[in-house]
Nucleic acid binder design. Structure first.
Length: 646
RNA sequence: GCCGAUGUAGCUCAGUUGGCCAGAGCUACUGAUUUGUAAUCAGUGGGUCGGGGGUUCGAAUCCCUCCAUCGGCUCCA
């Protein structure tokens, strides 16, 4: 007999070889129907696997993320089975579950698969699912595995088997399809009730640019049709928030082929929004002891030879500008730090001065591969809310914490509640990728981990994701379509101070090397605004809104009064304008609502006579009337409260 | 950069077996109207059908090529 401990603490005595499914059936038929897999002693396994030792057991259903993963992984197999019926000889790479659904990388040979094939594949998947074929697990020898896929002619599977250890290889079969697979899988295909293939895309075999490119088919499945419908509705909603769409509709930014791809043009309203954000952060930074500096957009090649960036990125960046007479080479600056190092070097420093914090909204230019460009989130010219902190080694952790606090202040002011802090450490297996000593790396990594812990950040650690010069802490958020983007970043750098031979004089009258911290709470203005647009669906908070108030006259007769109100508001630093058009009030309101102007003031005969305005709030409707002085006060109070981060 | 898809007026989109001067709505402009909380009416203007080349009596439509955009991959100081 073995003892099985359930999540509620209950302990069951069961014969050796009992399966999780048996246990589920013992609890309830309903549960048994919904069990997709099981987690035994922390390992996810098939519900049909016999249990042979004591342990803790959790039955996984659709409500568990691991249950979903198993469901989607099995769905990938189901799709593969369907694909094989339409594309005989098709070869398979890998087919894992992902955050939303699954994909399978396939090589269909000379019979391309396009989205036009989706319908028939989906139908076939549903047809196969209805047969409720069981997923059957089988342990095979490496030799047998080789033999099977050699006969099938699937070189990708052979490539995978090559790296597997004999004795650990398993096959899973359902219906007429057998795949090399670690598992686990759901009991049978019958629970897959709704299927939707999302897209096809190219993907390199094993993620290697030099390998053959396979066709990746993305799909998602659900145990209920209703859930698929809901998911598709959610995607539609997300599309409406896409910053590229809203950016155009709200006239925030645009691109021009003539100017060049990936080079955003900020329209007046977008520039206004951007300026509000800059002013907000500049104010906070002044309070936190930052010193504003300004540096040029280009820098001599020598600067980047010294920094080491020339060697690493020289060939893959915009090529240098040459002076006609001297033939000197200048690069568009891809980052601000080398310039700031030279500012630091402009005079000797005492340990008493540190930390020194140079801040600059610095516009930088990076050559991004053409296929990488994406709205405002991935561009070739962008402005970093950059700053470089030069401090003593004993100040690193404190400074780090202060920066975390600043980032959190910004996020709070802008109502970003969901983000994760990613700690990026170097890959210990591949230390040659990085510059700097082991000792310095360890010190820096420890400082980051401790600082993040002290501020209670929700962190994930990513090994091998560090920059080549130091570890970093990045704040990640998701866009409307669930894609993850890095916003703020804090990076420790022991490298540049070394390369630029930065120094300060210590209390011992000896020269010491400062530590540098790069940091940008927004990251880049472009990306931050992109994410902000999606975050608030274009309904910017009042204090940021490019147009805060629009005054709408009932007819042209009241335009004079409307202008009087507008002038009064503008004199109080409220961004107000008048819709002077000869349109009916309904039309003016509709247009202002579509433009997402936070406040509409409707003025007619009654208001003009009483010196009042009729207030309509965006998305909420009529709020009644008040004197325009009172309205102005209300707006200013709101703005003031928000800008201070409450 | 790679794979796949897309590209018609300022915007959103019709226009598919190649065939009269390429269409609609919104926007813009002109006029009428002077309006009370999400679209007043009428008229006018606006397009090298992404660029270039080709096939054809004839191309927005078929082919080639380049460019840009979109979805991914790879990359991201």
């Amino acid at each position: 007999m073995i003892q099985i401990t359930l999540p509620d603490g209950k302990i069951l005595e069961k014969p050796v070889g009992t399966t999780s499914m048996d246990i589920a059936k013992g609890i309830s038929e309903g549960l048994a129907r919904n069990v997709l897999a099981a987690k035994f002693n922390g390992q996810v396994i098939d519900a049909s696997r016999p249990l042979n030792s004591n342990g803790t057991l959790e039955l996984l259903t659709w409500d568990h993320s691991e249950g979903k993963s198993t469901f989607w992984h099995s769905s990938a197999h189901l799709m593969a089975e369907a694909l094989e019926t339409f594309f005989p000889g098709i070869k398979f790479g890998i087919g894992p579950p992902i955050e939303n659904g699954f994909y399978y990388d396939v090589d269909p040979g000379d019979q391309p698969i396009s989205s036009e094939d989706f319908k028939k594949i989906e139908d076939k998947m549903l047809e196969l699912a209805r047969q409720s074929s069981q997923f059957v697990r089988r342990e095979v020898s490496k030799e047998e595995a080789f033999q099977y896929f050699t006969e099938k002619g699937d070189q990708y599977k052979l490539d995978l088997i090559k790296d597997l250890q004999d004795g650990t290889i398993t096959f899973y079969s359902q219906g007429n399809f057998t795949d090399l697979c670690r598992g686990p899988h759901i009991p049978d295909t019958g629970s897959i009730k709704a299927v939707k293939l999302m897209s096809v895309a190219g993907a390199y075999w094993r993620g290697d640019e030099k390998s053959k490119q396979l066709t990746r088919i993305y799909g998602i499945t659900f145990p209920k049709q209703k859930e698929l419908t809901e998911y598709l509705t959610l995607l539609e909603e997300a599309k409406k928030r896409d910053h590229r769409k809203l950016g155009k509709e709200l006239e925030l930014f645009t691109f021009s082929e003539k100017v060049g791809m990936g080079l955003p043009l900020w329209l007046p309203k977008g520039a206004q929004l951007r300026d509000r954000l800059e002013q907000f952060l500049k104010k906070a930074q002044l309070k936190a002891g930052y010193l504003p500096v300004v540096t040029p957009h280009i820098g001599n090649k020598d600067l980047y030879v010294t920094s080491g960036h020339y060697e690493k990125y020289g060939a893959d960046s915009f090529q240098p500008i040459r002076t006609p007479a001297e033939g000197e080479e200048f690069f568009l600056k891809p980052m601000n730090c080398p310039h700031h190092c030279e500012i630091y070097k402009s005079k000797p420093h005492s340990y008493k001065e540190l930390p020194i914090r140079y801040a600059e909204f610095g516009t930088v230019y990076r050559y991004e591969q053409s296929g990488e460009l994406h709205g405002l989130t991935r561009v070739r010219g962008f402005t970093q809310d950059d700053a470089h902190l030069f401090c003593r080694p004993d100040q690193v952790k404190d400074e780090f914490i202060k920066v975390i606090d600043l980032v959190l202040f910004v996020f709070r002011a802008l109502d970003f509640k969901e983000f994760i802090a990613q700690v990026s450490l170097r890959d210990p297996e591949n230390k040659t990728k990085y510059i700097g000593t082991d000792e310095n790396w360890e010190k820096a990594e420890r400082a980051i981990v401790e600082a993040a812990a002290e501020r209670g950040l929700n962190t994930v650690v990513e090994t091998g994701e560090a920059a080549f010069y130091g570890p970093k802490l990045d704040f990640m958020v998701k866009d409307a379509l669930g894609r993850k983007w890095q916003l703020g970043t804090i990076q420790v750098d022991y490298n540049l101070p070394e390369r630029f031979e930065l120094e300060y004089t210590g209390a011992d009258n000896q020269k010491h090397r400062p530590v540098m911290i790069h940091r940008a709470p927004f990251g880049s203005m472009e990306r931050f605004i992109a994410v902000l647009i999606e975050h608030c669906a274009g309904n910017f908070p009042l204090w940021l809104s490019p147009e805060q108030v629009i005054i709408l006259g009932i007819s042209e007769k009241y335009n004079d009064y409307a202008h009087k109100v507008s002038e009064f508001l503008k004199n109080s630093d409220i961004r107000a304008s008048v819709d002077e058009r000869d349109e009916k009030i309904g039309k003016k309101i509709r247009d202002a609502e579509i433009r997402k102007v936070p406040y509409m003031l409707i003025v007619g005969e009654k208001e003009a006579a009483e010196n009042t305005v009729s207030v309509r709030k965006h998305g909420q409707g009529d709020m009644g009337s008040m004197s325009f002085e009172k309205f102005s006060e209300m707006i200013l109070d709101d703005v003031k409260a928000r800008m201070s981060g409450n």
